[in-house]
């Protein structure tokens, strides 16, 4: 019990003292996940919105596929991205394996379906409400997309935060494509896994505490924005 308490106090000391190694890992984690979420938003939001308003054969199949991708096992995503980026893979020439870029790619693959699916749900619900009114005002289906995206902005920020939550807490895919290389691709989750196995619990606990803090902050923001979105009359799933 005493050892447990001492590990906790060492962890706290690392955080409070601003341990450069610890904060470098936190910074890299944030950089990778924020980039991944931004790229996912650029891809996922228009795709989700288009699926919400467009009507074409195979649309339902695409929606089911996209929803299924939300639950895709991260290690499998990691494996597929690894195969793409490995020397013998189609993108091997880019030499991205074991770099933060590879980790961003893996997270983009994981997060894009989440953002696209949540965007589709939110925009489809809003489109149902707005559809006749926008048509009456002479707004075409295509032109309605930016209107819907803007008016669903609160719920869409929630979708982004949900994507960020998934990205920052992800370990399976990034450890495969990043390799967990010290000072290069070591992020919070992979460091926690490694340091725990090495018995260096103070660093693992410190990173765990920061990760939990980020998760709580993200969830608090999601709750606040969800509440505001509901108050605005838009409930998202």
């Amino acid at each position: 019990m005493q050892g447990f308490a001492s590990e906790f106090s060492s962890a706290l000391a690392l955080i409070v003292a601003g341990d450069p190694e610890l904060w470098a890992i936190v910074l890299l984690s944030l950089q990778v996940s924020v980039f991944a979420v931004l790229i996912s938003a650029v891809i996922g939001m228009p795709v989700g919105a288009a699926l919400a308003v467009a009507r074409f054969p195979g649309r339902r199949v695409l929606i089911v596929l996209m929803n299924a991708l939300m639950g895709f096992p991260p290690v499998v995503v990691g494996l597929l991205v690894y195969l793409m980026l490995s020397r013998s893979g189609p993108l091997g020439v880019l030499e991205l394996l074991y770099t933060p870029t590879a980790m961003i790619i893996a997270q983009v693959v994981l997060v894009t379906p989440i953002i696209a699916a949540l965007t589709r749900q939110v925009v489809e619900m809003l489109a149902e409400e707005y559809s006749e009114q926008l048509r009456s005002l002479g707004v075409s289906r295509l032109a309605s997309v930016p209107v819907l995206l803007w008016d669903a902005r609160l719920a869409l920020v929630t979708a982004l935060l949900a994507g960020f939550g998934r990205a920052i807490a992800e370990v399976g895919a990034v450890i495969i494509v990043g390799g967990n290389i010290n000072h290069v691709t070591r992020v919070m989750t992979t460091t926690i896994a490694l340091e725990t196995s090495k018995g260096n619990l103070a660093l693992a606990l410190a990173l765990g505490a920061i990760l939990i803090g980020i998760a709580i902050a993200v969830n608090a923001m999601v709750s606040t924005l969800s509440l505001r979105a509901e108050q605005e009359g838009l409930r998202h799933a």
Binding site: E129, Y130, E132, Q133, S136, L137, G138, V139, V147, D151, A152, E232, G233, L234
Partner: peptide
């Protein structure tokens, strides 16, 4: 133009709802 039984207003200010049409 048409006005519906339940008014469908954009999630914006009163002025922005009018400006949406005027801009077009």
């Amino acid at each position: 133009a048409m006005v519906f039984q339940q008014p469908v207003l954009l999630r914006r200010s009163v002025a922005a709802n009018l400006d949406f049409v005027l801009r077009r």
